[in-house]
Design a protein around this nucleic acid. Structure first.
Lengths: 153, 153
DNA sequence: GCGTTTTTGTTGAGCGTTCAACTAAATGGC
DNA sequence: GCCATTTAGTTGAACGCTCAACAAAAACGC
């Protein structure tokens, strides 16, 4: 027999709605700012960041997809756009002929370097400035727990 | 002279990345589940929820936009889809001839009622089950603080 | 009243994401 | 070695969102 639904109690309800409101507003604000100041959405900024941190500023497409938490398809479309913008170049992989290596171009790096200060300022303003140090710590633990729980690891 | 960027320190960096990973994974999981089980994205589910809670299961478009934290344009496009699905109907507003009133249809209500248990179960599984009661409380406070900070109130 | 401004809601184009289908190459079983 | 399976990456269609432009009605100023 089907188990009765465990509905959210009023506190959980309140938590869930506040979470939805906050996280949506946060991502929308950062997305809008990045679009305005750097001409790219937050997801593309993240791709450039990951590439900039990798050795030789390059990563296999699948590793990049993993790192940015995106599907292969999404990354493939994104790489096409980023390549058209001149920020990324795709090269053949010497050890695996199926593979493609995404490389951050100098122009891509420069664009990222120009966008980073404003974006970091936005993250500060919208997120960290609003929270106490203890809350930042709580948010870290909560997020790490959830991330582990959700990505099955 | 331009102020030096206050970069994120390692703890903030870690917090921010964990937050991004967790919130993206959470919303993607819920979105995928709702799409699979109810044939609608999470944003549309929220619209139906708000309508179902309103008196007469109806709301002015602008109030509905406010309640769901969406732009008028987004809601307008969404309402068109929801109307095509037969879940929502739009009526003229008697007191303001510019106005439109979104009404949840019986079919929309039934669809929502069918989708709700599975969705709530998903929210439990992916979010509340992973956190301690204390963490749920912390998340509520953090989210409410951020929501107030971000929506300027 | 009457012109200006504001509010309400819609529209269409462009973009990014998802999903399913697909190609090509590597891996594994026997 | 060879066939089946798995993995890497791309593609196109459908969909939802953003943004800017717009039409229509209400509110405001005087």
């Amino acid at each position: 027999m089907a188990v009765m639904t465990r509905w959210l109690d009023p506190d959980e309800q309140r938590t869930w709605r506040a979470y939805l409101t906050a996280s949506r507003a946060l991502m929308e604000a950062l997305d809008r700012e990045l679009q305005r100041d750097a001409g790219m959405p937050h997801a593309y900024y993240e791709i450039l960041v990951r590439l900039s941190e990798a050795p030789q500023r390059q990563l296999r497409m699948s590793d990049l997809a993993e790192a940015t938490g995106s599907s292969r398809s999404r990354l493939s479309h994104a790489a096409a756009r980023l390549e058209a913008a001149g920020w990324v170049r795709r090269e053949e992989c010497p050890t695996d002929r199926r593979g493609q290596i995404a490389v951050l171009t100098d122009e891509g790096f420069a664009t990222l370097a120009a966008a980073a200060p404003g974006h970091v300022e936005g993250v500060r303003r919208h997120l960290f400035d609003a929270l106490s140090p203890a809350q930042v710590d709580q948010l870290r633990r909560i997020s790490e727990t959830l991330a582990a729980h959700l990505t099955g690891s």
